[in-house]
Structure formats: C-alpha cells, structure tokens
Amino acid sequence: MTGWRLKLVFFVGLLLLWEALVRLQLWPSYVFPSPLAVGRSLVAGIANGFIPLAVLTSLRRILLAYALSLLIGIPLGLLLGRTRLLQETLGTLVLGLQALPSICWLPLALLWFGLSETAIGFVVVMGAVLSITVSTADGVRNTPPLYLRAARTMGARGWRLYTGVILPSALPAILSGMKLGWSFAWRSLMAAELLYVSLGLGQVLTLGRELNDMARVLAVMLVIVAIGLLTDFAFFRPAERRVRQRWGLHGNT
C-alpha cells in the first residue's frame, strides 16, 4: 500500500478504535465524547457561525502579528548576520530570549497594553520574531565565501552584493525561519487566547471546558490542526520545494 491509501486506512482504523472505546462506556460521554458527537458539534459550530467567527478572529490576529514579525525579524537578522558587533551583543540577547516561551510575556504585555489586541499581538510577535531573526542571521553568515569572492571579483559591492548574493544565498535559511516562526506564532496565539478571554479559537476552547462540552473542545482542536496543516501545505511546502529545486538541493521533499 502506498502513500495516501496507507494513511487513509490508518486514520479510519483510528476512528473505529475511538468509536469502539466510546461504546465500551468506560468513561462518561462528557469526558470522552464519540467521534460522531465531535463531528456533529463541528457542523453545528460552523452552521451557527461561532467557529467561522473564531477562526477569522484568530487568523486576523496571527496574520497581523506574523507580518510584523517578518518586517522586524528579517531585516534584524540581515543586520546581525553581517555585523560582528551586533552579533556579539544583540545576537546574544536574541539567543537568550529564544529560550523563553513567549507566553511568559503575557503578564508584562497585560500590564503594558491592558486587556487589548495589542497585548495578544505582542506575545505572538515575541514568539515568532526571534526564530525568524536567528535563522536569517545564520543564513547570512553561512553565505559561502566563494560566492562573495566571485561576486567581488566581478565588481559587485555594497547594496548589489547584498541583494544579489547574500540575500538569495540565505533564502533557504530565511524560509525555514519563516516556517518555524509561523508555528511559534500559532502556538503563542492559542496560549494567549486560552489564558486571556477574548473571542478567537483559544477562547472557544476555554468556553467548552467551562460548559463541560468536550465534543466542542475536540471539534475546535480539529479546526486548529486543520489550519496548521493547511498553511503548511498551501504555502510553506510549495515555497520550500521551489527553492530546493532551484538551488539544486535534493533530498527529503
């Protein structure tokens, strides 16, 4: 059996196992709902509009914060990768901050920005921007010296050297930083929304817990997984494949 068929069999089997466990009635249904109940809750949630609303709210937040993270992270990484002084100082700080889960910024963010969109945005940016910066700086620093020498001997320097050689050479690293940044942003957003009530998918999860509606919780979790997979398949994978093809990097794609 190949590829998608193997996957199909595996997941259908998993659903059947789930249903069988529910039928055994080991746990009450509000603790361990059946796949059918989750499906029903999902359809109902989409039909009455609260899931689409939550999805839109969360997506708007993440897109805004992610765009901001790219705007800060990539230029900062480009700067760090080429400037030894900045690398030694600011670069060390960035590396240190990366060890901090971004949700730890929430108390400070609430204090600084109040119960606002800005507070959530801040947490998400702090989650995404560091990994984008670090990957970009690594990519810039790993520009093969031979490329630089070849470009310089052909008379490229300054801005031309940067945009013509260093940036494209760092592109695979920048892309993997963007991918990592997106997944950090998504995690940070969910954590922030769970802790701090305010529309969005995270809040629907909290609401489900408070109402003892585990079918709804699981339905929303499925939606979160779907969004994560969708962005990966719709954007990051095609982009990575194109870069790998062009750069002649063959391997596990």
Binding site: A150, A151, G155, W247
Partner: peptide, 21 residues
C-alpha cells in the same frame, strides 16, 4: 569550483557582472 549562483539561470549567471555594472 565554478562558484556559479544556484538561484540564477545559466543566462543570469553570465549576466551577473554586467548587472552589477
């Protein structure tokens, strides 16, 4: 090593120095 830039086509590689000027 030829030190060609993999992100450019063969034509753009040859044209690189000209573009720089």
């Amino acid at each position: 090593e030829a030190a060609l830039f993999p992100w450019l086509t063969v034509r753009d590689n040859v044209a690189f120095g000209l573009a720089a000027h």
